[in-house]
C-alpha cells in the first residue's frame, strides 16, 4: 500500500530523495544544497506531510542527480534527522543519515559585525561544530557562537 507522502508525489526513477526534513525547512535544504531549479533537474518538494518520527515533515526529491555525502552533510545544520535515499531504476540502492561535518565552510557568515571575516579581507568564514544538539558553531576567527536561530536567519 502506498503511504500518504508517496501518493502526493510519484516515485522517481533515478536520483536522490531527502526524507525526514523538519516541516517547513525543505526550501532551506535546497538553498544549502545550492539547488535553484535552474540546473534542469526535476525537483519535487512535499511540505508538511505526516510522519511517525517527526509528526510533520518535508521531503525533497531530485531526479537525475545523486548527491554525494560531502555535499549533503551540510544540511544536518537544519535537518539533523534527514535521511538520504539514492534511487536507481525506482529502487532505493543506498540509504544514509546525514552527519554534521566538524567544520562548516561557504554557507554561513559570522554574525559578529567586528569579525575580520566581515571586512574587506580575502577570507572564507569557517566554523567549528561545538555541539550538535543543541546546535552550536564557533567562528574560527573571532570565536563567536552561532546557534540554530542564527543559522536559520542566514538560510
Amino acid at each position: 500500500m502506498l503511504s500518504d507522502s508517496e501518493l502526493k508525489v510519484r516515485k522517481i526513477k533515478d536520483g536522490t530523495v531527502i526524507d525526514h526534513i523538519p516541516a517547513g525547512n525543505a526550501l532551506a535544504v535546497l538553498k544549502i544544497l545550492n539547488i535553484t531549479g535552474r540546473e534542469g533537474h526535476t525537483v519535487s518538494i512535499v511540505m508538511n506531510v505526516s510522519s511517525k518520527r517527526l509528526g510533520l515533515k518535508d521531503i525533497v526529491k531530485i531526479e537525475g542527480r545523486e548527491l554525494k555525502p560531502d555535499e549533503v552533510n551540510k544540511i544536518a545544520l537544519i535537518a539533523p534527522n534527514a535521511t538520504i535515499n539514492i534511487v536507481r531504476n525506482y529502487q532505493v540502492v543506498e540509504k544514509k543519515s546525514v552527519t554534521l561535518p566538524s567544520e562548516i565552510y561557504d554557507i554561513l557568515s559570522c554574525p559578529n559585525p567586528m569579525c575580520v571575516t566581515n571586512a574587506n579581507e580575502p577570507v572564507t568564514p569557517r566554523f567549528y561544530v561545538d555541539s550538535e544538539s543543541p546546535l552550536r558553531l564557533r567562528c574560527h576567527y573571532c570565536g563567536w557562537f552561532l546557534e540554530r536561530e542564527d543559522v536559520l536567519k542566514q538560510i
Binding site: 569579525c115 575580520v116 579581507e121 577570507v123 574560527h140 576567527y141 573571532c142 570565536g143 563567536w144
Partner: peptide, 13 residues
C-alpha cells in the same frame, strides 16, 4: 594591534 576580532589569526594564516 587591530580593531577587528580574529585579525591576528587571519594575519598568521
Amino acid at each position: 594591534r587591530h580593531p577587528l576580532e580574529g585579525a591576528a589569526r587571519l594575519a598568521a594564516e
